[in-house]
Structure formats: structure tokens, C-alpha cells
Design a protein around this nucleic acid. Structure first.
Length: 670
DNA sequence: CTGATTATTTTTTTT
DNA sequence: AAATAATCAG
């Protein structure tokens, strides 16, 4: 290492040519991938179609940078899930060595969380802030809304969930409320001013109590990297090599952050596929890809078009799905994987027939040697798999469902979390409120008064011992609560110790509240097991909010779970994954495209891309199911929203379907 | 303060 | 149809 004060890494230095690489990049990558992996300094956009080895590019890129002398800590890899980041780092470590594990990686939100814990003080954010999930945020909105008295207005006021949606949309798209209301909630246009007021009050409320919701994490991170030049420079230089996965799903706010992070050095490599943009509902802008070269002048664009995942017939089919998409980077995926089986198109007579077919086919394939692990069933919306889940249970086929309900959102888990949160952040009024309401005899009014004393007057848990409460019948319970928070908050208790204390305190209370207590208790026990993986309680809480486990919680080291299972997943949650065999359920008008998304061509285009993402997950076998729904499913009794009127338009619009698919007819008897 | 009744609104996808 | 907000009774 040269002793000069400045460190510089020249990727194309003469020395690099002579360096002996552990990996033979040219032999292991195709020319397009190689170009992306070895892109030098500056900005690069890699347009990588489905199955073309995006992950491969990113992992080899990590290895390549490290082999060129870049310290791993200075590489930042932003992905759509923490799992994806870990997987890439693991694979890179397999290629090269353990240095790859030191690469910084995670989701934008996870990264924001880390940076704000560390440097948030610049913005007046303490290191112990609480992260609010959607439900917590709605609680806060509700509280503020009531306090401002908008409940009693002559006109109907949007409810908490709607307000949360409006606020979030505005933050993520960067549009003013006026515009958001105009586009999505015209019925509230005249309440713009009031909505604005609530938004400001909520922001203030959160700020005073150390509460950050998902959007705040990104907002504050942007503040951090843009507001003060010295900090921005310091942080940007900490990540000399920036890599972004799934660029097509970044929104404006994330783009601002990337631009700021890259400013000091201009090194950014983004990978994405405009055909797979499926997150516009949270502000994703395909334009971030289309206009990449404007944001990062001189950016080079590399296209990777050889598909290594799917067989030729499947690719032939999926290419046709997006033929009619309007704005796009032209690319034609090709595959050299021979396989005779074309995608199979079926029209079961009912949803039950659909489920029966899936069960039967899964069993047959397993018989033929395809493990359950290599098969998946995908669908637009969580409840679309309800019937199938029953059928699978009856057929004793083990499965796991991804997407949809989260374990962490169940009320007993939220209760326990509230207890832990007040230990970490004693100003977390939302959690205090929840905890207090659990105590017998304490209702909204009493809870409010107590929160007022604990949080607003900054008395902390001591307020629970106030003499004025002595004659209340719940005085003893309050003292026990105070004891718990003081004990669990003791210096440097581990996450599992705090968890144990919380359960000890809360169990008797929760037992009274839930009549199905036994089941819930098991959940909490497994939660305690997970907490053992964490040193710090704050890390445990942040992780569970940012990257919550699915419905059944017991993951990897669970042990008591079947180790072979069929995957059921929403299409959104299936992003980036692949299976030998894929079933796509309910390709029916109103389901896919969803009845709620028929409003504009833009929405319909996104639904089409969703279908594309689903179909491109398949390597060899693709089963497309378009059941007859009779009578058509009706949503909330509103005749405007019906589903099940014939097969999806996305199937009907495919050029010469008979050529690229095989149509199966089902025998009558499910 | 709690529980019940009536009136109204919202429906998907995720960090 | 289900969830949630406002209102009323004890």
C-alpha cells in the first residue's frame, strides 16, 4: 500500500494487466456479461433480460473489483431484498474468498437504517429510533387525525389507511398532494388543505418521538446525502463502487439517493430489465432506466440477451407476451436450451378443477423425479391460492406461501414488539399506547393521559408510579410495567434477554386477551428463538420490521418444518427466483389483470409485465391455467368489479397462441 | 370505559 | 362482503 494520504484505485492501471487473477473471467462469462463485469470507472447500465444471468454479472463484478484491489468495504450492493444481497455475497465468496462477505449490501431501506443509526445525529435523529411498519404508521395517523378533530367535519374525511396511501404515494413519486389526489382520489380533492395539514402534523409527531416509517428512512437518507456537502462527500467516498440491482423498480427518491452517492466518484453499475418493472404502485419509474444516461452522463449501456434459464419454447412464448408493450429497450432474448415441452394452456371447468390439476400434476412430476423444491405456483394476489391451499393440505403436499400476510403483523406479535420497542425508544408513543391499552381497566382516555406524562412530559416510566395513580385499581399493573421497562432496559441486555423479560411480563396479560392463546404462545416462543441470533435488541427489532419473515416464521434453522416443500407465491414475491416447473393460476380477466388495474393503459401494461415476470420464472415446464369461474367472482357486491369473465386478455392477445403453446383438455372428474 | 348498533368506505402488489 | 368509523346504551 502506498503511504500517500490519498487512496486511488485505477482499474485499468498497467499493473492490472500483469496481475494474476484467480478467476478466468473470459472463460466463465459470455462476451456481454464480461463487458459488464469488467466495466471500468464511471457509470454503466446493464440491461439484462429475464434469466440472462443478472446475479452472475453482479457476483462476478464483486469478485473482479476485489481482485483489482478494491477493498470490499467500499463496495455497496443495493438489492431488492436482503436475502438477494446475502446470496450474491455468498456466491461471490464461493468464486473468490471470504473477503466478499465484507461487501456492504442490502435493500435501500436496510442501508438507510444503518446509515441513519450511525450518522442520523447530523439531522437530529438519535440512534434509537423506531421503525414504523404500515400498521404503526396508521396508528400514528389516526391519533393525529383525531387530535386535529377532522373526524367531526361535515364532509367525510379519508380514513387512516387511505391517508397513509396518499402520503406514501406523494413521497415516493415526488408529486404534490394536489396531483396525487387528482389522479387517484378525486373524491377528496376539496380536502387537499386539510390532508396537507394532517401530513405535516404527522411528520412533526413522528419527528418528536423518534419514529420513522418506511418512507422516512429513504427521505432522511436523502437529506443526509444531499443536505450537507461534507457529509455527502464523506459518505459517497465510503462507497467507491456502487451497484444496484433491479434498477427498473427504483423510484425517484431512490434515484436522488443514488445520484448523491455517486457524485464524488461517478462509479455506479446498475442492472435492470424494463420488461420486469412491477412496482409502479410504490412510485417505481422505468424512466430511471430509460434516462440513466441523462442522470449519469457518459454512461455506457450493455445489453445481455442470452438466456440461461428457460428452454426455447418457453422463451418463444414469453417473448410474445411483451411484443405489444409500448415504451421499451428493444431486446430479443434467445436460448440454446433444447426442450420439447411447450408451455401448456389449460381451461379447467372451475377453481376446484384448477386446484385438482395442480395437485395431481405436482404429484406426477415428483414421481418423475422433480423435487417439490423445484416447483412453484404463482398468482397475482394472496387470496387467489386459498382454494389450492385446501386442496394441497388434503393431498398432503407440503407447501410454503410467500407474500401476503406476514407473521409480524398478527396482533399478539405486535403486542410483544411494542413492549420491546418502548425499552429501546422510551419516546415511542405508539408502542406505549398499545402496551397500556392491554392493561385491564385502561382504555383510550387513561392510556392517553399516561402517554402524555411518559412521553410528552418526558417523565419516562417513572410516571407510571405517580402518586396520583395510587388509588386506581390498575396501579399495581402499572408498577409492574415500570419494573419491566427498567429491568429490560438495563445496560447491554441482549435481544433474547429482553425478549424473555417481555414475555414474562406480558404473558399473563396476553393470556387474558386471546382465547386461542396456545397457538399464539407457540408463535411467541419461536420469535424468542429468532431473537437469539441478535446481539442488540435494536437490531432485532429493525430487522423484523424491514425484512419480516413470512407466514410461518420458522425459517432456515427451524428444524421442525418439512425440508421439502412446494412454493406458493405472489408474483411480486417471486421476483428474481426460478423453478424447473411453474404454474400460473387464474389467468382470467379480473384476476390477471386485476380488476382494480383496468383504469388506464399504464396500469394494464404493468399487469402484462407481471404476467411476463411470472412466465419467465420457468425453466422447463410452464402451466398456464385459465379456469372458468362460474359464477364470476364478485368483489364487494359492486357489479363494476367482476372477475372471471373469460380468459385473460394477455392470453388472447398473444400472436398465434396455438403455435407456441400446447392446449390440454381436462377429463371431467376432479 | 366497554360493548353493541348503525353508517359508511374500501377493496392488490411491498419496503 | 368485510373492515372501520361514528353513535348510542348501560
Amino acid at each position: 500500500m502506498p503511504e500517500s494520504g490519498k487512496k486511488t484505485y485505477k482499474l485499468h492501471a498497467p499493473a492490472a494487466a500483469a496481475r494474476h487473477f484467480a478467476i478466468d473471467y473470459a472463460a466463465e462469462l459470455n462476451p456481454q456479461q464480461l463487458e459488464a463485469v469488467q466495466a471500468g470507472e464511471g457509470a454503466t447500465l446493464v440491461i439484462a433480460g429475464a434469466g440472462t444471468g443478472k446475479t452472475r454479472v453482479l457476483t462476478y463484478r464483486v469478485a473482479w473489483l476485489i481482485e483489482n484491489g478494491v477493498p470490499p468495504e467500499e463496495i455497496l450492493l443495493l438489492t431488492f431484498s436482503r436475502k438477494a444481497a446475502q446470496e450474491m455475497m455468498r456466491r461471490a465468496a464461493g468464486l473468490l474468498d471470504d473477503r466478499c462477505q465484507r461487501v456492504q449490501g442490502g435493500t435501500f431501506h436496510g442501508y438507510a437504517n444503518r446509515m441513519l443509526r450511525r450518522y442520523g445525529n447530523v439531522l437530529g435523529i438519535g440512534p434509537n429510533f423506531t421503525i414504523l411498519d404500515r400498521g404503526d404508521l396508521e396508528d400514528a395517523i389516526q391519533f393525529v387525525r383525531n387530535k386535529l378533530g377532522f373526524g367531526e367535519a361535515e364532509k367525510r374525511f379519508p380514513k387512516k389507511g387511505t391517508l397513509a396511501a396518499i402520503f406514501s404515494r406523494s413521497v415516493n413519486t415526488g408529486l404534490p398532494y394536489r396531483k396525487v389526489l387528482d389522479e387517484e382520489y378525486p373524491q377528496y380533492l376539496e380536502l387537499e388543505e386539510e390532508i396537507q395539514k394532517v401530513a405535516e402534523a404527522v411528520a412533526e409527531y413522528k419527528k418528536a418521538r423518534g419514529l420513522l416509517d418506511y418512507d422516512d428512512l429513504l427521505l432522511r437518507l436523502r437529506d443526509l446525502v444531499t443536505r450537507d456537502e461534507k457529509t455527502a462527500d464523506f459518505i459517497g467516498r465510503g462507497h467507491r463502487y456502487l451497484m444496484v440491482d433491479e434498477m427498473q423498480d427504483t423510484n425517484r427518491l431512490q434515484m436522488d439517493i443514488l445520484r448523491a452517492l455517486a457524485r464524488p466518484h461517478g462509479n455506479i453499475l446498475a442492472v435492470g430489465d424494463d420488461f420486469q418493472s412491477i412496482y409502479s404502485f410504490r412510485g417505481a419509474e422505468i424512466r430511471n432506466m430509460m434516462d440513466f444516461s441523462d442522470a449519469f452522463p457518459g454512461a455506457r449501456v450493455v445489453k445481455v440477451e442470452e438466456n440461461y434459464r428457460s428452454s426455447r419454447p418457453i422463451l418463444d412464448f414469453t417473448n410474445r407476451i411483451i411484443e405489444s408493450a409500448p415504451e421499451k429497450y428493444e431486446k430479443k432474448l434467445f436460448s440454446s436450451i433444447e426442450h420439447a415441452q411447450k408451455p401448456v394452456l389449460l381451461s379447467p371447468a372451475s377453481e376446484m378443477h384448477q386446484s385438482a390439476f395442480v395437485c395431481q400434476r405436482v404429484l406426477e412430476l415428483r414421481e418423475e423425479g422433480v423435487p417439490l423444491e423445484r416447483m412453484a405456483v404463482l398468482f397475482r394476489t394472496g387470496f387467489h391460492s386459498n382454494d389450492l391451499e385446501l386442496a394441497l393440505t388434503r393431498a398432503r403436499i407440503p407447501f410454503r406461501k410467500f407474500g401476503g400476510f406476514k407473521f409480524i403483523e398478527t396482533s399478539h406479535v405486535k403486542d410483544v414488539f411494542a413492549h420491546l420497542r418502548i425499552v429501546v425508544n422510551p419516546f415511542d408513543a405508539i408502542s406505549w399506547n398499545r402496551v397500556l391499552l392491554l392493561i385491564q381497566g385502561v382504555g383510550p382516555a387513561a392510556a392517553n393521559r399516561l402517554v402524555e406524562a411518559i412521553v410528552e412530559k418526558r417523565q419516562g416510566a417513572a410516571a407510571l408510579r405517580d402518586a396520583s395513580l395510587a388509588k386506581k385499581k390498575y396501579a399495581g399493573d402499572l408498577r409492574a410495567l415500570a419494573d419491566f421497562t427498567e429491568k429490560a432496559g438495563g445496560e447491554h441486555r441482549s435481544a433474547s434477554e429482553a425478549m424473555e423479560a417481555a414475555l414474562k411480563y406480558a404473558e399473563p396479560i396476553l393470556k387474558e386477551h386471546y382465547d386461542d392463546w396456545r397457538k399464539r404462545r407457540d408463535d411467541l416462543q419461536s420469535l424468542a428463538v429468532v431473537s437469539e441470533r441478535y446481539e442488540k435488541l435494536g437490531d432485532f427489532l429493525a430487522d423484523m420490521t424491514l425484512d419480516p419473515p413470512g407466514e410461518d416464521l420458522v425459517e432456515e434453522d427451524g428444524g421442525d418444518k418439512e425440508d421439502e416443500f412446494l412454493t406458493l407465491s405472489t408474483i411480486h414475491s417471486a421476483k428474481g427466483l426460478e423453478w424447473q416447473t411453474v404454474f400460473v393460476l387464474s389467468l382470467v380477466e379480473g384476476y390477471l389483470p386485476s380488476a382494480q388495474s383496468l383504469g388506464s393503459d399504464k396500469q394494464i401494461d404493468e399487469e402484462r409485465r407481471l404476467f411476463y415476470v411470472a412466465a419467465t420464472r420457468a425453466e422447463r415446464n410452464l402451466y398456464l391455467l385459465a379456469p372458468h369461474l362460474d359464477p364470476p367472482a364478485r368483489f364487494w357486491g359492486n357489479p363494476d368489479f367482476q372477475a372471471g369473465h373469460g380468459p385473460s386478455r394477455f392470453l388472447r392477445e398473444i400472436r398465434e397462441v396455438e403455435d407456441c403453446t400446447e392446449i390440454w383438455n381436462l377429463e371431467e372428474d376432479p
